[in-house]
Protein backbone atom coordinates (compact mmCIF):
# COMPACT_ATOMS: atom_id res chain seq x y z
CA UNK A 1 0.00 0.00 0.00
CA UNK A 2 2.67 2.46 1.07
CA UNK A 3 4.91 1.43 -1.79
CA UNK A 4 2.14 2.17 -4.27
CA UNK A 5 1.60 5.63 -2.82
CA UNK A 6 5.29 6.44 -3.03
CA UNK A 7 5.49 5.16 -6.60
CA UNK A 8 2.58 7.37 -7.60
CA UNK A 9 4.13 10.37 -5.87
CA UNK A 10 7.43 9.68 -7.61
CA UNK A 11 5.81 9.35 -11.03
CA UNK A 12 3.84 12.54 -10.44
CA UNK A 13 7.00 14.35 -9.41
CA UNK A 14 8.96 13.22 -12.43
CA UNK A 15 6.17 13.74 -14.95
CA UNK A 16 4.52 16.90 -13.63
CA UNK A 17 6.67 18.78 -11.16
CA UNK A 18 10.09 18.39 -12.78
CA UNK A 19 9.01 19.89 -16.14
CA UNK A 20 7.43 22.82 -14.31
CA UNK A 21 10.65 23.40 -12.37
CA UNK A 22 12.69 23.20 -15.58
CA UNK A 23 10.23 25.58 -17.22
CA UNK A 24 10.50 27.98 -14.34
CA UNK A 25 14.30 27.78 -14.40
CA UNK A 26 14.37 28.48 -18.14
CA UNK A 27 12.46 31.71 -17.59
CA UNK A 28 15.53 33.15 -15.86
CA UNK A 29 17.71 32.76 -18.94
CA UNK A 30 17.87 35.02 -22.00
CA UNK A 31 18.35 34.59 -25.72
CA UNK A 32 20.85 36.31 -27.91
CA UNK A 33 20.80 35.71 -31.65
CA UNK A 34 18.50 32.71 -31.36
CA UNK A 35 20.74 31.05 -28.77
CA UNK A 36 19.90 30.58 -25.18
CA UNK A 37 22.31 32.17 -22.73
CA UNK A 38 22.46 30.13 -19.55
CA UNK A 39 23.19 32.97 -17.14
CA UNK A 40 20.54 33.55 -14.48
CA UNK A 41 18.90 36.95 -14.84
CA UNK A 42 15.46 38.45 -14.35
CA UNK A 43 15.55 40.31 -17.66
CA UNK A 44 12.87 38.12 -19.23
CA UNK A 45 10.45 38.68 -16.36
CA UNK A 46 11.11 42.43 -16.30
CA UNK A 47 10.52 42.60 -20.05
CA UNK A 48 7.37 40.59 -19.64
CA UNK A 49 5.83 43.26 -17.46
CA UNK A 50 7.27 46.31 -19.23
CA UNK A 51 6.49 45.26 -22.80
CA UNK A 52 2.75 45.82 -22.68
CA UNK A 53 1.94 42.15 -22.12
CA UNK A 54 -0.08 43.34 -19.14
CA UNK A 55 -2.90 44.11 -21.47
CA UNK A 56 -2.75 40.63 -22.92
CA UNK A 57 -2.65 39.12 -19.43
CA UNK A 58 -5.66 41.08 -18.27
CA UNK A 59 -7.59 40.19 -21.40
CA UNK A 60 -6.72 36.52 -20.96
CA UNK A 61 -7.82 36.60 -17.34
CA UNK A 62 -11.04 38.40 -18.17
CA UNK A 63 -11.94 36.03 -20.99
CA UNK A 64 -10.98 32.89 -19.06
CA UNK A 65 -13.02 33.92 -16.04
CA UNK A 66 -16.00 34.99 -18.11
CA UNK A 67 -15.94 31.66 -19.92
CA UNK A 68 -15.70 29.76 -16.64
CA UNK A 69 -18.55 31.70 -15.05
CA UNK A 70 -20.78 31.19 -18.10
CA UNK A 71 -19.91 27.47 -18.07
CA UNK A 72 -20.77 27.23 -14.38
CA UNK A 73 -24.03 29.16 -14.76
CA UNK A 74 -25.18 26.94 -17.62
CA UNK A 75 -23.38 23.72 -16.69
CA UNK A 76 -24.52 23.35 -13.07
CA UNK A 77 -28.26 23.48 -13.76
CA UNK A 78 -27.74 21.19 -16.74
CA UNK A 79 -25.74 18.69 -14.66
CA UNK A 80 -28.36 18.85 -11.88
CA UNK A 81 -31.13 18.17 -14.35
CA UNK A 82 -29.18 15.34 -15.96
CA UNK A 83 -28.33 13.69 -12.62
CA UNK A 84 -31.51 14.19 -10.61
CA UNK A 85 -34.15 15.54 -12.96
CA UNK A 86 -36.94 13.59 -14.60
CA UNK A 87 -34.72 12.26 -17.37
CA UNK A 88 -35.36 8.74 -18.57
CA UNK A 89 -32.57 6.21 -18.88
CA UNK A 90 -32.46 6.71 -22.64
CA UNK A 91 -32.45 10.50 -22.35
CA UNK A 92 -29.57 10.38 -19.90
CA UNK A 93 -27.55 8.01 -22.09
CA UNK A 94 -28.11 10.23 -25.12
CA UNK A 95 -27.05 13.35 -23.23
CA UNK A 96 -23.91 11.67 -21.89
CA UNK A 97 -23.04 10.43 -25.37
CA UNK A 98 -23.54 13.93 -26.78
CA UNK A 99 -21.19 15.29 -24.10
CA UNK A 100 -18.57 12.66 -24.95
CA UNK A 101 -18.65 12.77 -28.75
CA UNK A 102 -16.88 16.19 -29.02
CA UNK A 103 -13.80 14.58 -27.44
CA UNK A 104 -13.44 12.37 -30.55
CA UNK A 105 -12.89 15.42 -32.74
CA UNK A 106 -9.92 17.72 -32.81
CA UNK A 107 -10.59 21.17 -31.34
CA UNK A 108 -9.41 22.95 -34.50
CA UNK A 109 -11.76 21.07 -36.79
CA UNK A 110 -14.64 21.67 -34.38
CA UNK A 111 -13.84 25.36 -34.13
CA UNK A 112 -13.21 26.15 -37.77
CA UNK A 113 -16.78 25.19 -38.61
CA UNK A 114 -17.97 28.24 -36.69
CA UNK A 115 -16.27 30.50 -39.23
CA UNK A 116 -18.72 29.32 -41.84
CA UNK A 117 -21.63 29.83 -39.51
CA UNK A 118 -20.69 33.15 -37.93
CA UNK A 119 -18.96 34.87 -40.86
CA UNK A 120 -20.19 37.96 -42.79
CA UNK A 121 -21.85 35.74 -45.39
CA UNK A 122 -22.29 32.87 -42.93
CA UNK A 123 -25.41 30.98 -41.95
CA UNK A 124 -26.49 33.27 -39.11
CA UNK A 125 -26.11 36.48 -41.05
CA UNK A 126 -27.79 35.03 -44.13
CA UNK A 127 -30.79 33.93 -42.06
CA UNK A 128 -30.97 37.25 -40.18
CA UNK A 129 -30.86 39.24 -43.40
CA UNK A 130 -33.24 36.88 -45.15
CA UNK A 131 -35.75 37.45 -42.36
CA UNK A 132 -35.20 41.18 -42.69
CA UNK A 133 -34.03 41.54 -39.10
CA UNK A 134 -30.87 43.36 -40.12
CA UNK A 135 -29.88 45.30 -43.23
CA UNK A 136 -26.16 44.71 -43.06
CA UNK A 137 -24.37 41.58 -41.81
CA UNK A 138 -23.42 41.68 -38.11
CA UNK A 139 -19.66 42.03 -38.13
CA UNK A 140 -19.14 41.33 -34.42
CA UNK A 141 -20.23 37.72 -34.85
CA UNK A 142 -16.80 36.64 -36.08
CA UNK A 143 -13.24 37.88 -35.42
CA UNK A 144 -14.28 39.47 -32.16
CA UNK A 145 -14.09 38.78 -28.44
CA UNK A 146 -17.71 37.59 -28.53
CA UNK A 147 -16.79 34.95 -31.09
CA UNK A 148 -13.80 33.80 -29.03
CA UNK A 149 -15.92 33.60 -25.88
CA UNK A 150 -18.59 31.70 -27.73
CA UNK A 151 -16.11 29.23 -29.20
CA UNK A 152 -14.52 28.57 -25.82
CA UNK A 153 -17.86 28.15 -24.05
CA UNK A 154 -18.86 25.51 -26.60
CA UNK A 155 -15.52 23.69 -26.39
CA UNK A 156 -15.28 23.69 -22.61
CA UNK A 157 -18.89 22.77 -21.82
CA UNK A 158 -18.32 18.98 -21.46
CA UNK A 159 -15.27 19.36 -19.16
CA UNK A 160 -17.38 21.57 -16.87
CA UNK A 161 -20.54 19.45 -16.91
CA UNK A 162 -19.03 15.98 -16.55
CA UNK A 163 -17.43 16.28 -13.09
CA UNK A 164 -20.42 18.18 -11.71
CA UNK A 165 -22.77 15.57 -13.13
CA UNK A 166 -20.74 12.77 -11.53
CA UNK A 167 -20.60 14.54 -8.15
CA UNK A 168 -24.35 15.15 -8.14
CA UNK A 169 -25.21 11.61 -9.20
CA UNK A 170 -23.18 10.34 -6.25
CA UNK A 171 -25.55 12.12 -3.85
CA UNK A 172 -27.93 9.54 -2.43
CA UNK A 173 -31.55 10.29 -3.36
CA UNK A 174 -32.67 9.59 0.20
CA UNK A 175 -30.57 12.56 1.37
CA UNK A 176 -32.70 14.79 -0.83
CA UNK A 177 -35.85 13.06 0.42
CA UNK A 178 -34.71 13.48 4.02
CA UNK A 179 -34.11 17.18 3.45
CA UNK A 180 -37.55 17.53 1.88
CA UNK A 181 -39.10 15.47 4.69
CA UNK A 182 -37.50 17.71 7.33
CA UNK A 183 -39.26 20.71 5.82
CA UNK A 184 -36.74 22.13 3.36
CA UNK A 185 -37.95 23.87 0.20
CA UNK A 186 -36.28 22.82 -3.07
CA UNK A 187 -34.07 25.94 -2.87
CA UNK A 188 -33.01 25.11 0.68
CA UNK A 189 -32.21 21.54 -0.34
CA UNK A 190 -30.16 22.91 -3.24
CA UNK A 191 -28.15 25.36 -1.16
CA UNK A 192 -27.74 23.24 1.98
CA UNK A 193 -27.35 19.72 0.57
CA UNK A 194 -26.77 19.56 -3.18
CA UNK A 195 -24.31 22.44 -3.62
CA UNK A 196 -22.10 21.57 -0.62
CA UNK A 197 -22.02 17.90 -1.64
CA UNK A 198 -21.26 18.68 -5.28
CA UNK A 199 -18.38 21.07 -4.49
CA UNK A 200 -15.69 18.51 -5.42
CA UNK A 201 -17.27 18.24 -8.88
CA UNK A 202 -17.70 22.00 -9.18
CA UNK A 203 -14.04 22.57 -8.27
CA UNK A 204 -12.94 19.94 -10.77
CA UNK A 205 -15.18 21.52 -13.42
CA UNK A 206 -13.64 24.92 -12.75
CA UNK A 207 -10.11 23.51 -13.01
CA UNK A 208 -10.93 21.66 -16.24
CA UNK A 209 -12.50 24.77 -17.68
CA UNK A 210 -10.31 27.57 -16.32
CA UNK A 211 -6.99 25.88 -17.15
CA UNK A 212 -7.72 25.31 -20.85
CA UNK A 213 -9.39 28.74 -21.05
CA UNK A 214 -6.24 30.45 -19.77
CA UNK A 215 -4.17 28.50 -22.26
CA UNK A 216 -6.69 28.66 -25.11
CA UNK A 217 -5.00 28.95 -28.46
CA UNK A 218 -7.30 27.53 -31.12
CA UNK A 219 -10.35 29.72 -30.47
CA UNK A 220 -8.58 33.09 -30.27
CA UNK A 221 -6.58 32.19 -33.37
CA UNK A 222 -9.50 30.95 -35.47
CA UNK A 223 -12.40 33.05 -34.20
CA UNK A 224 -10.45 36.09 -33.01
CA UNK A 225 -8.86 36.60 -36.36
CA UNK A 226 -5.80 38.29 -34.82
CA UNK A 227 -7.90 40.90 -33.04
CA UNK A 228 -8.11 39.00 -29.76
CA UNK A 229 -4.60 38.25 -28.57
CA UNK A 230 -4.28 36.06 -25.51
CA UNK A 231 -1.25 34.83 -23.60
CA UNK A 232 -1.18 31.66 -25.67
CA UNK A 233 -0.73 33.73 -28.82
CA UNK A 234 2.20 35.52 -27.18
CA UNK A 235 3.67 32.17 -26.26
CA UNK A 236 3.26 30.97 -29.80
CA UNK A 237 4.90 34.02 -31.33
CA UNK A 238 7.76 33.83 -28.83
CA UNK A 239 8.10 30.15 -29.65
CA UNK A 240 8.30 30.76 -33.39
CA UNK A 241 10.93 33.41 -32.70
CA UNK A 242 12.82 30.72 -30.75
CA UNK A 243 12.77 32.87 -27.62
CA UNK A 244 12.42 29.94 -25.23
CA UNK A 245 12.97 31.92 -22.01
CA UNK A 246 10.00 34.12 -22.94
CA UNK A 247 7.94 31.02 -23.64
CA UNK A 248 8.98 29.64 -20.27
CA UNK A 249 8.24 32.86 -18.41
CA UNK A 250 4.83 33.22 -20.04
CA UNK A 251 3.92 29.61 -19.33
CA UNK A 252 5.11 29.86 -15.76
CA UNK A 253 3.08 33.03 -15.46
CA UNK A 254 -0.07 31.22 -16.67
CA UNK A 255 0.53 28.48 -14.11
CA UNK A 256 0.96 31.06 -11.36
CA UNK A 257 -2.24 32.79 -12.44
CA UNK A 258 -4.10 29.47 -12.40
CA UNK A 259 -2.83 28.65 -8.90
CA UNK A 260 -3.82 32.12 -7.67
CA UNK A 261 -7.30 31.81 -9.12
CA UNK A 262 -7.79 28.31 -7.73
CA UNK A 263 -6.71 29.58 -4.32
CA UNK A 264 -9.28 32.35 -4.57
CA UNK A 265 -11.85 29.80 -5.71
CA UNK A 266 -11.14 27.62 -2.69
CA UNK A 267 -11.66 30.57 -0.37
CA UNK A 268 -14.97 31.36 -2.06
CA UNK A 269 -16.03 27.70 -1.86
CA UNK A 270 -15.37 27.76 1.87
CA UNK A 271 -18.16 30.28 2.27
CA UNK A 272 -20.64 27.75 0.83
CA UNK A 273 -19.52 24.98 3.10
CA UNK A 274 -16.47 23.14 4.26
CA UNK A 275 -14.88 21.97 0.96
CA UNK A 276 -12.83 19.36 2.80
CA UNK A 277 -15.93 17.82 4.36
CA UNK A 278 -17.83 17.72 1.10
CA UNK A 279 -15.24 15.27 -0.18
CA UNK A 280 -16.51 12.90 2.48
CA UNK A 281 -19.47 12.09 0.31
CA UNK A 282 -17.03 10.27 -1.95
CA UNK A 283 -16.05 8.09 0.96
CA UNK A 284 -19.70 7.52 1.85
Amino acid sequence: MKVAVWLIVLAWFVLVIVPIIVLFAFSFFTTEQFRTVYTPTTTTWVELFSSGRWEVTLRTLRIAMTVTLIELAVGFPFALWLAKGRVGKVGRAVCLAMLTIPFFLDVSSRTIVWRAILGQSGLVNTVLMGLGLTDAPLDWLLYSEVAVLFGMVVTLFPPMVMPIYLAISLIDDTLLEASNDLGASPWQTLSRVIIPLSLPGVMAGIVFSLGPALAAWVEPGMLGGGFVNLISNSIESAYSALRYPVVAALSAFVILLLLLMLGAMYLIARRFGDPASSFRVLRG
Partner: peptide, 29 residues
Protein backbone atom coordinates in the same frame (compact mmCIF):
# COMPACT_ATOMS: atom_id res chain seq x y z
CA UNK B 1 -45.69 18.31 -0.35
CA UNK B 2 -43.61 16.37 2.18
CA UNK B 3 -41.94 19.55 3.43
CA UNK B 4 -45.27 21.01 4.59
CA UNK B 5 -46.53 17.92 6.46
CA UNK B 6 -46.31 17.72 10.22
CA UNK B 7 -44.49 14.40 10.24
CA UNK B 8 -40.91 13.26 9.81
CA UNK B 9 -39.36 10.02 8.68
CA UNK B 10 -36.55 7.92 10.10
CA UNK B 11 -35.10 6.31 7.00
CA UNK B 12 -33.93 2.74 6.82
CA UNK B 13 -30.41 3.78 5.74
CA UNK B 14 -30.54 6.77 8.15
CA UNK B 15 -30.00 9.35 5.33
CA UNK B 16 -27.71 11.52 7.46
CA UNK B 17 -25.98 14.40 5.68
CA UNK B 18 -22.31 13.42 5.33
CA UNK B 19 -21.06 17.00 5.06
CA UNK B 20 -22.48 18.02 8.43
CA UNK B 21 -21.46 17.11 11.95
CA UNK B 22 -23.77 15.13 14.20
CA UNK B 23 -25.25 18.19 15.86
CA UNK B 24 -25.61 20.05 12.54
CA UNK B 25 -27.58 17.11 11.22
CA UNK B 26 -29.93 17.21 14.18
CA UNK B 27 -30.30 20.99 13.95
CA UNK B 28 -31.09 20.84 10.21
CA UNK B 29 -34.88 20.85 10.57
Amino acid sequence: PAAKRNCTTVFQNYALFPHMSVVENVAYG
